[in-house]
């Protein structure tokens, strides 16, 4: 399996993700600068990392969505290969219209860095097939523009199509919904995929829950393993 991590000016989780997947996946990792127009190593998985691409100015992800590499990402997506956007990476995917919706400022108007509990809502995609629906996992969040927004009719379409993959939840009861979304996301949405299930965007950081000696928990390990399994079962592309 080959992975490319796209680095934008202002990305800050690129190295974190590189370390997390090097630890958990049998994958060769390439770091690709946003000005490139193609992926030279023909990756199976492209990851857009968190951080403050272009300072987060104007709107988070807006300027990164105009980078050279975006065309190559769209080509990659069209081939049905995997794309994962985490935090700012999710924002970039929505700005580039590879995923529906927008991430707008948290209702608290503050940055929020906390552990967050997510209910797995859907396993028919290339990222969460190793989970069971209803599993609750803990991935930390760290964002200022993390409120998932979509106009009501489109939101219904998204829900009906089963594109909501992660929803904020109560760690004890496992119940999910808007009331557990610290930033005020509509329907408590934390992560979504496209209809084909090959593009996933989520605000929480699975890479921060990958090392047991660190303070973010270990629930991310199963997430990475699930990607590897989905990839293995398909026997590559």
């Amino acid at each position: 399996m080959k992975t490319s991590i796209v680095v934008f000016p202002g990305s800050s989780c690129d190295r974190d993700i590189e370390r997390a997947i090097s630890e958990t996946l049998n994958t060769q990792v390439d770091m690709v600068w946003h000005e490139e127009t193609t992926f030279s190593n023909d990756p199976d998985l492209v990851i857009l990392p968190g951080g403050y691409s272009f300072g987060g100015y104007l709107r988070s992800g807006a300027m990164a969505a105009c980078s050279n590499i975006i065309e190559a990402i769209k080509t990659h997506a069209a081939k049905g290969k995997m794309i994962l956007g985490i935090a700012n990476g999710f924002q970039i995917l929505t700005e580039a219209q590879l995923l529906p919706g927008a991430l707008i400022p948290n209702t608290s108007l503050t940055f929020i860095c906390q552990k967050a509990y997510l209910r797995v809502e859907q396993t028919e995609n290339m990222f969460t097939s190793d989970y069971k629906i209803g599993d609750v996992v803990q991935f930390p969040i760290a964002h200022h523009e993390g409120l998932y927004f979509l106009p009501p009719s489109e939101l219904k379409e998204l829900e009906d199509a089963g594109q909501v993959v992660f929803r904020y939840a109560d760690p004890v009861t496992g119940e999910s919904g808007a009331e557990y979304a610290l930033e005020g996301s509509l329907n408590g949405i934390a992560g979504i995929c496209n209809k084909k299930g090959n593009i996933l965007g989520l605000m929480p950081h699975p890479e921060r829950a990958t090392f047991k000696h660190l303070n973010g928990g270990v629930d991310g390990i199963a997430f990475w393993k699930s990607i590897a399994k989905a990839f293995g079962e398909r026997g590559g592309f």
Binding site: I104, L147, F149, P152
Partner: peptide, 14 residues
């Protein structure tokens, strides 16, 4: 400007 259908959190705070 934020669309009317979108919660204008800054506007609300102001």
């Amino acid at each position: 400007m934020p669309r009317k259908t979108v919660l204008d959190t800054q506007g609300k705070a102001v």
